[in-house]
């Protein structure tokens, strides 16, 4: 671990707008633990509650290309952007190939944009488990909006919905028919659906099928109605309409009070998961509990006691109230 003075220096450089220091703080967030907590304490006064947009969809749908196009529309309005792109870690080697920057080459030369690739390091759900902390770094660095691009997802990797204010689900004509669109999961978390690769001959039909299935859902008066937008990230078509819809959704969130509620929910779930992590660490580092588990597992193995009996015994050792 770094000395306190060294950490202070990194935070000072970060406050002065140094890119390398920002990159270093993001690594500290990724590695977690007490050092990450100390950084959050230090930057807490600078955290304002940045607007978070999640982008998710199957692999190869064109998420990175579309995001890099969309970024320029935010930059035209002088909004500063943090972009988090997540790719999977190998369950075998632990390594990862993070290739989203290939589609975002035009962004690195803009000082108003900071792109960071994260490996999911085994976290399920499509995002990295340091997403909140990385967002805090962007927030404190004065960014106005953060994009979070998930790994290429299937139907049930939905964690991005819990970590963002607006969710854009990016699909392509090959993503499936109307029945796929009616299924639970991915199709339920989108505020905006994008049918990308609009030059594909089946794109219009696919977009109408999604629209039809969205219409089957009940929407209360005044609630946001999810919509479908045809885009081509490659040709920069329809991206202006996507930006308009995103602006409308942001305004809806502010006007309805939903933004405030979502911010609170994100922070509440963060306290919960940090608490669970902390308890887990404490349990695993407790000598008394380890000894009890070692002694009693034989009984579990031989069905003399159930797993739950052992859990009750452990639970009674942790006196919370």
């Amino acid at each position: 671990m770094r000395s306190a003075a060294k950490l202070d220096k990194i935070v000072d450089d970060f406050r002065a707008g140094n890119t390398a220091a920002t990159g270093r703080l993001l690594s500290i967030m990724e590695n977690g633990g007490p050092e990450a907590e100390r950084v959050i304490e230090k930057i807490l006064p600078d955290i304002k509650g940045i607007y978070r947009i999640g982008f998710t969809g199957p692999p190869g749908a064109g998420k990175s290309t579309l995001i890099s196009r969309l970024a320029s529309y935010y930059r035209k309005q002088d909004e500063k952007l943090g972009i988090i792109v997540v790719d999977p870690s190998s369950p075998f080697s632990g390594g990862a190939l993070l290739g989203d920057r290939v589609r975002m080459q035009n962004l690195s030369s803009d000082p108003g944009i900071f792109v960071r690739s994260l490996a999911n390091r085994g976290t399920l759900g499509g995002i990295s488990n340091c997403t909140d902390e990385a967002v805090d770094i962007f927030d404190a660095s004065g960014k106005d909006v953060v994009f979070i691009e998930t790994v290429g997802v299937g139907q049930s990797e939905l964690a991005v919905a819990e970590k963002t204010h607006t969710v854009v689900v990016i699909l392509v004509p090959e993503s499936g028919d109307g029945i796929q669109a009616m299924k639970a999961g991915l199709m339920e978390i989108g505020d905006i659906f994008v049918m990308n690769k609009s030059d594909h001959q089946d794109a219009g039909m696919a977009a109408r099928e999604i629209e039809a299935s969205l219409k089957m859902k009940r929407v209360e008066e005044g609630d946001w109605e999810p919509r479908v937008i045809l885009t081509s990230g490659l040709k920069d078509e329809g991206v202006d309409r996507l930006k308009e819809s995103l602006d409308q959704h942001r305004k809806y969130l502010e006007d309805s009070g939903l933004m405030k509620r979502k911010r609170r929910e994100i922070l509440y779930s963060r306290v919960r998961s940090a608490l669970i992590d902390r308890l887990d660490r404490r349990i695993r580092s407790s000598r008394r509990i380890t000894e009890l588990v070692e002694a009693r597992m034989e009984d579990v193995y031989h069905s003399r006691i159930s797993p739950y009996t052992l859990v009750h015994e452990i639970d009674s050792m942790i006196k919370i109230e």
Binding site: A96, L97, V102, S109
Partner: peptide, 18 residues
């Protein structure tokens, strides 16, 4: 990657600045 490292690949035709 196979050796357990996180590799960021940036693609072709990069300028030194990028």
């Amino acid at each position: 990657k196979d050796a357990g490292m996180e590799v960021i690949y940036t693609g072709l035709h990069q300028t030194p600045e990028l």
